[in-house]
Amino acid sequence: MGKQINSAYSLPADHPPDAAGSRKLKAGRRWESPLAGYLFISPWLLGFFLFTFWPMIQSAYFSFTEYSLLEAPKWIGLDNFNKILNEDRLFYKSLGVTLWFVFISVPLKLMTALLVAVLLNRKLRGMHIYRTLIYFPSLVGTSVAIAILWSNMLGTDGFVNKLLSYAGIEGKSWIGSPDTALGTLILLAMWQFGASMVIFLAGLKQISGELYEAASVDGASRIRQFRTITIPLLSPVILFNLVLQTIAAFQMFTQAFVITKGGPINSTYMFALYLYEKAFGRLEMGYASAMAWILLLIIGAVTALIFFSSRYWVFYATDGGKSK
């Protein structure tokens, strides 16, 4: 799986990266089908320039302007960034909320996904039923429907409180209290670990059973096997999941918008929510663009940090098992 991911994220298999690089230097290289090639990818190429590249340049420009959509953008230099970084307390609040959400929900979600995947990676009768039941909540993950369910379940009159009252615990509106509202969103994210779990399962299937047999012959306990065989061999998949989930968590919107609307007292005011409010609520498009670039920088930095740290904890089986 690790190898697969590596090659998948580089280039088509028949064109290894260095070959492509050195070929460019050779003059007079004949392309087999240059025109047809560009013709086939032209829909994407056109779409990329029109809907990604050009908007990115515009967004960069807007971030230095005051722009309400109704009038032409007015250049104001670094004012937006100045205001965001020096005056906007809501910006820091929403950034803090988002960072809490990311740093708590992502590790918890991945740990759950990994443990459950290990549990499901056994031959047992009826396993596919368990797998279906456990995956099910992830199926309709970010829909409004799930958000509705959640906001009732954990509200004052929700059934969770009723259950707690049987146990003698006095409930409250978990969604309406500033100190637990973010927790309910994290819980929701955790409940939907299915996609990561499926990827872990695919990775686990690649680990040869012989390794475990050899380890148990040597007397290694289950926990030790998990720590010294499963985790290292699965680390490329863990990295993959970690990056994807982190990027997704930074952009969390629908649940916060529907369940808590950012409240109470802004305790769930996610960054994406604030950005939406600025752009489409108050039509401060320039300001929102500047915020989007800051978000991109933060996501980029966190992702880079993960990749950088991966040198120390991701293990590639192609090293011949010597890197540890």
Binding site: E32, S33, Y38, T52, V243, I247
Partner: peptide, 29 residues
């Protein structure tokens, strides 16, 4: 198909997978 810059464009495709859509939200709108 074999055409110039194929690898380059393909790596751009993969990069856009990771791009947060907030960045293009406003200009697209």
């Amino acid at each position: 198909l074999d055409f110039p810059l194929r690898s380059f464009w393909f790596s751009i495709v993969l990069m856009t997978v990771m791009l947060p859509n907030q960045i293009t939200l406003v200009p697209q709108y």
